[in-house]
């Protein structure tokens, strides 16, 4: 038992929570935006892979770290535009299109990566984001290092939560986005075109997914390798259901998930005799449990997965 308390009491574990949560926060916000406007975006897994690759490659080729982040956001938005084009005006199956985007974006990312780095046995590295200590606040015992000694994109991700929560519930644009996901006909009657609003919002959400991927290569690690996303995108899709499509709860869900992940990572190193695969399975099983708990309680956007065509119901 004392082992458990040692882990739970260590600053290192709590510091890791926000770091592990950051890509999940960004990805979950991205999925949340897309679904709030009425479109499922299963492209996330591939968009995160592409963001991770293009962000890393930009920096590897001599770009600034923030230029890398921007490249990931733009790349994500571009794939988001493709997804939106197919699912919104054409109204194609959102499930299959999203999977297609994931397969395309990830294989395209690996293709570009192999072109840029043809022969390397160990993946080349870059200088990643360094922790940014917030003056005064980071001096607070325990809470200081845990909350205020993170890298800049982590602060940005938390700021995005506040921004999106405010935008969705306190601005006319946010109201329009929510309406597009609940009742696009009513939105159209108000003189706002749901088609363009959906396309724009999906692009914004996909940009966040791209940044979530880039966090992995630019801050959490310092290199790119295929299959590094490891289902994080699918976890984000589950977290949005868990969060009942609300940004604040999405942050909470991502943090809880990361807390569990950080805990099991440390538990692996101290517990003998339990195969490591069982620990690695936990995050995926936990996501499924979260879905079971919330599936019936969550308030799904009413027009989710329903293509909008004027004059058709």
């Amino acid at each position: 038992m004392s082992v458990l308390f040692d882990i739970l009491g260590s600053v290192g574990m709590w510091e890791a929570v926000l770091r592990i949560a950051t890509p999940l926060i960004l990805g979950t916000l991205g999925v949340l935006l897309c679904e709030r406007v009425g479109v499922l975006n299963l492209g996330i897994e591939g968009i995160m892979a592409f963001g991770a690759m293009i962000g890393w490659l930009t920096v590897y080729q001599g770009g600034d770290l923030w230029t890398g982040m921007l490249a990931a956001a733009l790349g994500g938005a571009a794939f988001g535009f493709l997804h939106a084009l197919l699912t919104v005006p054409l109204g194609l199956s959102q499930h299959v299109t999203g999977l297609g985007i994931t397969l395309f974006a990830s294989s395209f990312a690996y293709y570009v990566f192999r072109l840029a780095v043809p022969t390397a046995s160990s993946p080349p590295t870059i200088d990643p984001f360094q922790p940014l200590s917030v003056p005064v606040l980071s001096e607070i015992p325990f809470l200081g290092p845990v909350l205020f000694n993170q890298t800049a994109p982590t602060y940005l991700a938390v700021a995005f939560v506040a921004l999106i929560a405010w935008g969705l519930y306190r601005t006319p644009l946010g109201l329009a986005v929510r309406m597009a996901g609940e009742n696009p006909h009513a939105l159209d009657a108000q003189g706002i075109d749901p088609i363009w609003l959906r396309i724009g919002t999906i692009m914004a959400g996909s940009a966040l997914m791209g940044m979530g991927g880039a966090f992995l290569t630019l801050s959490a690690f310092n290199s790119f390798f295929p299959t590094m996303i490891q289902g994080r995108g699918w976890v984000c899709v589950a977290l949005v259901v868990f969060a009942s499509w609300r940004p604040g709860r999405a942050l909470l869900g991502a943090l809880l998930f990361a807390l569990f992940d950080a805990f099991q990572l440390r538990l692996q190193t101290v517990v003998d005799g339990v195969p490591y695969q069982l620990f690695l399975m936990m995050p995926y099983l936990l996501s499924i449990v979260a879905l079971i708990i919330m599936a019936r309680r969550a308030r799904v956007p009413q027009a989710l997965m329903q293509p909008y065509r004027r004059g058709e119901r």
Binding site: L86, L103, Y110, Y111, P118
Partner: peptide
């Protein structure tokens, strides 16, 4: 890179969706 096969196959899924449409 042989990943071009993955790219082509994934693309053909997206183009197929459009073609059926």
């Amino acid at each position: 890179p042989s990943y071009i096969a993955d790219v082509t196959v994934a693309l053909s899924l997206l183009t197929m969706l459009v073609a059926i449409f």
